[in-house]
Simulated scan of single mutants.
Amino acid sequence: MARPREFDEADALGKAMQVFWSKGYEGAGISDLLEAMKIARGSLYKAFGDKKGLFLASLKQYETSCIEPGLQLLNDKNIPNGAHRIQALLETVVTVVEDDNDRRGCFLCNTAVDQAPHDPEISKICQDMMGKMVQGFYCALKDADEHKDLDEETLQKKGMGLNIAYNGLRVMVKAGYASEDVRKTINTILAEFDLLA
């Protein structure tokens, strides 16, 4: 009979995600991960296989803890005008800087730049997650008062454009732009996509 795990896997995974997010895949050593997760080397390998397995699980954790809440906001019918949902999501980028002084950017964007070019499996995961965000923006655009008469193809293109703009905001944060500059950029994005109330 298998022995039960001696650690909280979700908690340990959340801590590993923070290490990868801050240091990147190459920069995160096994010792860094073990120290943050508070587990033994054998437990890490038994639970996740190897460092890459842990990284992939961390990406999935990021999807659950960060991407899915963003998608829920973009699809929130309690906010009838989709333009307001999009604005609320874009403004979370500034909130992270102002409230937490978090300059790590987006773990997904970081991974897409750092690991996806060299690893087809990670590339596919990144594309799938970004595709979900594009669909989220598309759904919000369909409910935007300003875009009620646009055809499906145009809405899809605008959804892709908004996802690119959103990722760009996250890169601005990582690059150290002041929050007021990020806010100005958000207003520019909203104006360019005809989403200003």
Rank of each mutant, 00 (worst) to 15 (best):
E98L: 05
S123K: 15
A140M: 04
R103D: 06
M133C: 05
N110T: 14
D143K: 06
K142G: 09
K124D: 14
C106M: 04
V134F: 04
V96Y: 02
S123I: 01
E146P: 00
D143R: 11
D102F: 02
D143T: 07
D119V: 07
M130V: 02
F107E: 09
P117C: 03
D119R: 10
L108Q: 03
E146C: 03
F137N: 10
P120Q: 12
A112R: 15
E98K: 11
D102V: 04
P120W: 07
A140K: 07
M129S: 08
E121S: 04
L108K: 01
S123V: 00
E98F: 01
L141R: 07
Q115S: 11
L108R: 03
D114A: 01
R104I: 06
C109E: 13
K148T: 14
Y138L: 06
G136M: 03
D128N: 13
C139D: 15
D145Q: 10
V96L: 14
V134T: 11
M133S: 05
D102G: 03
A140P: 11
Q135T: 05
G105A: 03
V97C: 09
A116I: 08
G105M: 01
P117A: 00
F107I: 04
M133V: 10
H147L: 06
C126H: 11
T95F: 02
F137Y: 08
C106G: 10
V134D: 14
A140I: 00
D128K: 14
I125N: 05
P120Y: 08
A112G: 12
R103Q: 10
L108Y: 00
A116W: 09
D145C: 00
A116D: 07
G131E: 11
Y138P: 05
Q135K: 07
E98Q: 10
M130F: 13
T111G: 13
H147K: 13
C106V: 11
C139Y: 11
H118P: 03
D128Q: 15
D143M: 06
E121D: 13
E146L: 00
S123Y: 11
D102T: 05
I122R: 08
K132M: 08
G131N: 12
D102N: 14
Q127A: 13
D100H: 14
I122M: 08
I122G: 10
V134Q: 12
E146D: 02
H118E: 09
E98I: 05
K124G: 05
D145M: 02
D99Y: 00
A112N: 13
Q127C: 12
S123N: 12
